[in-house]
Each structure stands twice: as C-alpha cells, then as structure tokens.
C-alpha cells in the first residue's frame, strides 16, 4: 500500500496527544513560520500540563500586518494548558504589553527557562541527531551558566548544555508530498526543519500537498523520515496575500 501521511483534519492530527506531552512548536515569532491551525487544534483538544519549546511565547503583531492575523502559542497559555516553557524571546519588547504567557506566569501556572536562541536550537538539533549534550561558549560569564558544568577547551571556556527531546512537534512548511518530504518558504523555514527531527511524532501544517515526485529531490529541506502526519491549511494563498 502506498504511504500516505495526510490527515483529514487538524483535530484528527492532534487527537492522541496526551496530557504532559513535550511539544516542540515552531514560530520564530511571526505569522509565516507559525503552525497556527495545529496550535488552534491543540487548544480545542485541551491536553494539559504541556511543556512548550518555542523561540517565543506569543508576540502580538510580530511579522504581521494586523494583530488579528497572528495565532500563536498565546492561546495555549490563555487556556491554562502549559506548565513549563523553554524560549529565547518569551515576552514582547515593550514592558507595557501583557501577553497570556505573562498572565500564566503571574498566576504561577508555568515555569520558564530562558535559553539563548542558538543554544535552544542546538539543544533540539542535538536530540534529533542522537547527541546527549554539547559544550558551547554562549552564556559563559552570565546567569545562563549557573549550575552548569564548565570546561576549558583550547584555552576557551564552554558550558555544557543538554539535548531537549520532544514527544510531538508542530511545524509549518510550504509544500509537502504525501510521503512527508517538505519544502519551506524563505524566512519561514527558521526552526521548523530542526524541530521536525527531534520529536517522536512530527505533524506538519502545509499550504499545499503534491504527489511524490513532484518536488525536486535537490530542493527538499526536510526528508520524509522526519515527518509523520501532514495536514493541509484551508487557504493556499501565501506571502503578500496573507
């Protein structure tokens, strides 16, 4: 039987995600790389006590033309579903903007670990590549090094950072084939291909689904081995239409 990873709905694609799951959710911040429909389906699904690993934790209006366009992880915090979060850019730049994440933090519902962006990405990349931990110079001499093993290699100081493995990854790509090969669109690629490698189940939200063979093998960014479920967004228009 031919492999077909296409799911009929966003709800079906997230239906088995249990309470307590570690969720790798992409979105550098903007609308382009954000799996908005999958996040909405997670909100409706209602799984609790989630751990969210994402660059940001809700930035109203970031990379969009109107704030109404951007659905991000904010809705999971507003719905009391998250108990732990890893992020590099957790809050809006302006201290006057209070997001659902900040409200959840103030309620004491969620514990935050702020991680330098390159370290966050590398921790997830390491998990996907079978690496347990790695030494990085980023964060040496700052609060980030607190409690971490330090090592001097060739006269330079490094700190030890551990891999972060996910249970489920929710990612956004541009085009998928039915096998799960993915291509992205411009800066919306960002963390999506990395998150795809590090979860037990990777679910991709895409603009378009094509038959195997229609994507040029030379241009595939995420090979199908990393992708388990694919769901098509209702509206194919991208870029300047969005």
């Amino acid at each position: 039987m031919a492999i077909d990873k296409v799911f009929p709905s966003f709800a079906a694609a997230v239906a088995d995600i249990p309470d307590g799951a570690v969720m790798l959710i992409d979105g550098f911040g903007g609308a382009g790389g954000m799996p908005s429909y999958l996040i909405t389906a997670m909100r409706d699904h209602g799984a609790k006590n989630l751990t969210v690993v994402s660059n940001s934790l809700g930035l109203p209006g970031f990379g969009t033309r109107s704030e109404a366009e951007l659905v991000d992880t904010s809705i999971l915090f507003a719905n009391h579903q998250v108990k732990k979060a890893y992020a590099s850019f957790p809050v809006p730049r302006s201290p006057n903007v209070v997001t659902p994440f900040i409200e959840a933090l103030r309620r004491g519902e969620v514990v935050l670990e702020v991680v330098p962006q390159g370290t966050l990405v590398e921790r997830v990349r390491a998990a996907g590549a079978g690496i347990g931990a790695f030494y990085t110079p980023t964060g040496v001499g700052t609060d980030v090094e607190n409690g971490k093993e330090k090592k001097t290699i060739n006269d330079k100081e490094y700190i030890l950072e551990y891999a972060i493995k996910g249970d489920y990854a929710l990612i956004r790509a541009h085009i998928a084939d039915r096998l799960g090969n993915l291509v992205y669109r411009m800066t919306s690629r960002n963390m999506n291909p990395i998150w795809a490698t590090a979860a037990r189940v990777t679910i991709a939200e895409v603009d378009e689904i094509v038959e195997p063979g229609e994507l040029d093998p030379e241009t595939i960014v995420t090979p199908c081995v990393y992708v388990h479920r694919i769901v098509k967004r209702p509206n194919k228009t991208r870029g300047t239409e969005a």
Binding site: F89, V91, P95, V114, V115, P116, Q117, G118, T138, V140
Partner: peptide, 18 residues
Amino acid sequence: FPERGIGNIGGAMDLAVG
C-alpha cells in the same frame, strides 16, 4: 532590566560571543 524581572535573550548572547 532587573526591575522587569523577565527578559529576552534572543540571539544576543550568541552574537556577542561569536
């Protein structure tokens, strides 16, 4: 800013080091 109690590292630590 310590008075805010929360901040964004983003890519700054990597850039400053690299």
